[in-house]
Nucleic acid binder design. Structure first.
Lengths: 189, 189
DNA sequence: TTTGCTTTTTGCCATTTGGCAAATGATTCT
DNA sequence: AGAATCATTTGCCAAATGGCAAAAAGCAAA
């Protein structure tokens, strides 16, 4: 649990009593490879924090192709924000890429923290804002580059992921075919 | 100014006294075509709201190509969020695409609203969170599509923009060359 | 080790997109 | 109107990427 507290404390200060309040709310969730953390069509009712493993967010486009929107690895928040905040059904799947251990807060507990910890909302705002900005910053630059550059950028952005996820997921993240990615990797060495 | 108040009220409730407090802080900024609202290398100290005109956020990649990250048209917030929140120099230019009229809050005034209006922070959180999610949702799907589809998606996302901005800006937004975009447009009709 | 299953690589060719330069069109200024 | 400037379109060819299917490699269970 320490990882999560360290993570939170990056964004603000909490005393021990407040930390204990948070720890009391935490439950642990173990997902097997390919299990879903949340699913398209369902309202996402949890905020998670990846302790171990890699999760991806993906969806299907109108040609039925599966697209990976992004990856989330250890010590990062996993939450389908729009669905969680607006309590509307999501359009994406959040899926364990390998076996995962995830800390979880229910919506009820998350709200109670907001009501009981002064400054919690401010921390959450910073944390959410940063996470969302990061998504934009990671995704946007890809579009103006060719496939090889995109792959190299991916390696920089997610240095610990490439060897732990199937090639096809990376390809769909980069918007290229699996075959093209395979050829690109051959040419890089 | 009504536009801005309406915009804010989508995200929470305010009484007349609070609204007056906000209105008192507003100043108006007129930008000529091509003027910058904020610049790379400088700390962004303003939150804006576009009353009239179109603004774009752009940057230069390592090949010196100018890339349009996104467009902002009427009745939307314009803020270089990371720079504004963390008071660090920005890496992007925010530029008027045509003559613009923009409502502006200084950082100081923005903070004072946070200190004086109960619930202001909650409203701002919702508003920022939605704006950021929108950026992700608009950008991400483009990457897995071919250029023609990207252009069609652009038309849906920004229906009021295509005829008001140079072709080259749209092309750089879509990650294709101006010539390709020109050919694509020819083929669509 | 063998078998079966999944993932990755490769070959072949079609399609898409880029690069460059010239032509055309539009706009502004004089 | 004419000139200058800027934006857009087009032609030509090269390079990048996709589609499809088969081969190869990796992996796990028997």
């Amino acid at each position: 649990m320490k990882e999560f507290i360290d993570y939170i404390l990056q964004f603000g200060t909490l005393n021990q009593q407040q930390i204990d309040l948070i720890l009391k709310k935490i439950t642990t969730l173990e997902l097997q490879k390919d299990d879903y953390f949340s699913e398209a069509g369902k309202v996402s009712n949890q905020v998670g924090f990846v302790l171990d493993g890699i999760v991806r967010v993906c969806y299907y486009n109108n040609k039925g192709e599966e697209i990976t929107k992004y990856f989330i690895d250890e010590n990062n928040l996993v939450v389908d924000l729009e669905s969680f905040e607006t309590e509307t059904p999501s359009s994406a799947y959040v899926q364990a890429v390998n076996d995962c251990k995830i800390l979880v807060f229910s919506r009820k507990d998350w709200r109670e923290l907001s009501d009981t910890i002064v400054g919690w909302d401010a921390i959450v705002h910073k944390l959410i804002s940063k996470a969302l900005r990061q998504k934009v910053e990671r995704r946007s630059p890809l579009i103006s580059e060719d496939a090889t550059t995109r792959y190299l950028m991916f390696l920089e952005i997610y240095p610990n992921i490439v060897n732990r996820v199937p090639l096809s997921y990376v390809a769909s993240y980069l918007g290229i075919t699996q075959s093209s990615l395979s050829r690109i990797r051959k040419n890089i060495r």
